[in-house]
Design a binder for these strands. Sequence first.
RNA 1: GCCAGAGUAGCUCAGGGGUAGAGCAGAGGACUCAUAAGCCUUUGGUCGGGGGUUCAAAUCCCUCCUCUGGCACCA
Length: 519
Amino acid sequence: MSKRFYITTAIDYVNGEPHLGHAYEKIVADVIARSRRAAGQETFFLTGLDEHGQKVQQAAQAEGKTPQAYCDELAEVWQRFIAKLGLSNDDFVRTTQPRHQRFVQAILSKLHAGGQLYKEVYRGSYSTKEETFLTAKDRRPDGSFDPIFGEVIELEEENYYFKLGAYQRWLAEHIERNPSFIQPAHRRNEILGFLKNDVLEDLCITRPASRLSWGIPLPFDPDYVTYVWFDALSNYASIPASFGDPALAGPLGLPPSASQPAPSLWPADIHVVGKDIIRFHSVFWPIMLKAAGLLLPLQVLVHGWWQKDGQKMSKSTGNVVDPVRVIDDWGVDAFRYYVLRELDIGQDGNWTHAGFKSRYSAELANGLGNLVNRSLSMLKRYREGVVPPVSTELAADGERALTETRAHLSQNHLQAALQSIWSLVARANQYVDHTAPFKLAKDPAQGRRLDEVLYNLTEVCRILAVLLSPFLLETPAKIYSQLGLGALPGNLSAATWGRLPPGHRIGTPAPLFPRKEGC
RNA sequence: GCCAGAGUAGCUCAGGGGUAGAGCAGAGGACUCAUAAGCCUUUGGUCGGGGGUUCAAAUCCCUCCUCUGGCACCA
């Protein structure tokens, strides 16, 4: 079986609240996944949750629940969130699942057997209250620790380390040779600068089980559990491995697929991550894979952060955008459209209500929505909704939009693709005014000309629905329904000109993005 | 502090030696199919300051100012 296109989001810490940043990352990944499917590629899209760690352990205890019961409840919250965003993920990983733990233990065993791990004593300042070691950064300017840390003692603890530093030069060369490995380019430069100018230190990968029980035990030392790096990052490979993916199961000695043939997913094509965790994904994770003899992902695609009204979002000041609220008020398509259209991937964004409303009314309602409504209304009124013979006056414009959209999507330029699609919207709106079908309709001698104009407009509406299908969820289906065409095609090739059959009778036009008063 | 990047129209940004561009916002107009939407026309800028190279600089060089991003793991 040929390898599928495989894309992931970061997994979210189960304890956190779903916010705009999570929604944005997931929607970006979703649109890329949908665009690949629409290009005819078999695709696998994974998202999920990071459920281990001290904070979960403590929070569960505070609520008198087992950590697993606590996670199960929160996992439902996250799954509802994902459904709200309309994600097309093929699976949902939770790091507490046995299928994930098997992989983590397998890769740790292999690294241990290969001498890539070692045990060492660390001595440092330990906060008994926070149950964590403190670092220089935790010190106040006078050198003392903040009282929030409570009693601070000197403590020794033995842990396992992973030989990260040994791979520093190799990784720098890999990134040099593969310009697309970290995107966008300025993020790549940051990582390269770091790899060339700083010393990469080894990574502490465990906690004693006595201190942290809610984690995956080391297969070769039950006194320890593995800590965030191997536990969380491994999710990208653990799920393909659990299906028996030959690129993973074989090298790690995991059981082959129960259902043959095993899907071929690894290596991942794209890891979509936020700029805050770029280092873990473009330094730690590749080295972990390399050390274990596994293939590296092809690309780490780094997105920026959103601000609200030019300020950092913060729950304490109430300066937040609640994606669920926006979707409830404006619809999932308006939400998805705004975050995709506002930013090129990699830039930081600034959410403003005025900006959101402006794009909603100017681009969605007045641009796209009104075009579809006026076009179909005229076909309904002047031709009883029956599609006239094929005409090709706007065919070149339609084909250009298709070509550009495909080209942009193949490079994950989602914003640029939307701009290309909207240039067809603008062209068609202009065409209405230039050809004035409402005037042609008054002159019986102009019947053939009116037929031509109406075919072109109706076909543009259909093409727009197809082009928008990777981006929007409800609108393309609504357009198809209003066209009386049934199921939306799954492939962008349906956007080639002239597929709207003459003689076909369309459905009932209705506004796509209703005007909203007082919002 | 170090390393990048950026400062161009009211806003968001493109351009990168040879009459300053787009979208939005603003102004005016003709139309009426449509969600009072759409279409056409149009006002805005000595391209951060200063100096230099050149016949010619927003563009190249120097310098200054301002802003942004990054500087991990640090058990």
